[in-house]
Amino acid sequence: MRLFSAKTAGNRQKSNKTEGDNAKIALEWLFFELKSDSAINQALIRPSLAFKGFTTITNSGSEVIDPKRNVGRAIIISIAACVVIYTLVGFAVASNLSLAEIIETQDYSLAAAARPALGEYAVWFTVAIAMMATAGGILASIFAVSRMLDMLTEMKLVPHRHFGMPGSIQKHTLVYTVVLGLILTAFFDLSRIAALGIVFYLIMDIAIHWGVLRYLREDVKASAWVPVMAILLDLLVLGGFVWVKLNTDPFVIRVAVATMIVIAVAEQIFLKKSENSRQSGDEESHAHDHH
């Protein structure tokens, strides 16, 4: 009995020591991360990109049967599915790796967790999953952006040139989107592209919610608190992200501001020319009717 008690006490001491070591490692890692901008970047960029994916579902509304009913369902189902998948992945990693191992293998912790079951094939398995997920996300984003540009072109809000290409406007905007993406990858690394995307997306989201609140609230029967809360949360995230980038990589913010100024000026010029052309066309039509 005494021997059993001694062994039990020894095991408890080892367990407490392990837990203490894990806590110490976690605190040291957290302190190291918070000294840099990486922790804030991860906390802002990844959730923003994740939820951006859900909002792109709305860009396919015109191609969905009964969009008023099914678009909302699609968003809810996709969020629920992602929560389940992320929870299962987190449980699998936490069940197979200690805290120290998770911190050590943070970029490939899923592969490390799968190694006991799949051996050396674990890395290839997780790489294949990551490639499929990345490809799916890229294709979905390209389609959503090209669909939105097609819609804006049809509304005469953005300029468009065929450049001799056959097919519909959406096919043209699809090509333009891919070319723009290739240009970005040629001049910026992935972290800067993601940072630019976050800035542009948050500002666009603020503008859209302001438009709904200011001009379309009665038409779409929107509750005022929803766009107001969305704007406040967007400003909170955008302010924190810009502050971090100004201290760590101000070049990204300069590029974002310069690009937005160019786009705003070009859009104003285009809209003014379009309005003048429309007025000239109306005047010619009236003159023709009088004759």
Rank of each mutant, 00 (worst) to 15 (best):
A264K: 02
R217I: 12
I103L: 13
I45H: 03
S191M: 09
L34M: 15
T259G: 15
A50I: 12
V145S: 01
A186Y: 05
L27K: 13
S60K: 03
F200A: 11
H172I: 03
A117M: 14
G137L: 00
A258G: 08
R214Y: 13
W29I: 08
A80D: 03
N11Q: 12
H209W: 09
K7S: 13
R192Y: 06
L174Q: 05
G281S: 06
L216S: 14
T105K: 14
K14H: 10
W210I: 15
S223L: 13
I269H: 01
N11P: 00
T153D: 03
E154F: 03
A117R: 11
S60H: 06
A111Q: 02
A140S: 12
E275V: 09
N22C: 07
L213K: 09
T248G: 06
L232S: 10
A50L: 14
T134M: 14
M148R: 06
G136R: 01
T177C: 02
N11V: 07
P67H: 05
V265Y: 00
S62V: 10
I45T: 06
A207Q: 08
K156F: 04
L238V: 05
Q106V: 14
Y108K: 04
G167P: 01
V175S: 07
I263M: 14
H286V: 15
I253D: 00
L34V: 15
I253Q: 00
D107N: 14
Q106W: 15
R2Q: 10
Y86R: 10
M165T: 04
I138C: 01
G197W: 08
G211D: 09
A26V: 00
Y201W: 12
I85D: 00
M204Q: 09
S285N: 14
V226P: 00
A207Y: 10
S15D: 11
I76G: 04
Y201L: 05
M165E: 03
A39S: 12
Y176N: 08
I142T: 09
D66F: 07
I77L: 13
I169H: 02
M1R: 07
Q170P: 02
G240R: 06
K68H: 11
W29Y: 12
T8W: 07
A230F: 06
P116G: 01
V175H: 06
S191V: 08
L110H: 01
D21K: 11
V212A: 10
A92E: 11
A26P: 00
T126L: 04
V244K: 12
L190D: 05
A122N: 02
I231Q: 01
S95N: 15
L238K: 04
I203M: 08
Q170R: 15
V255M: 07
L110R: 00
G211Y: 09
T105M: 12
W243A: 15
A207C: 10
L97R: 01
K24A: 13
H209P: 03
L235P: 04
L118S: 00
S15M: 11
S274V: 04
V242Q: 02
A81W: 08
S38V: 15
A39R: 06
A9H: 06
S285Y: 14
P166R: 04
E63V: 12
K273R: 12
I203Y: 02
L246Y: 03
D205E: 14
V158C: 03
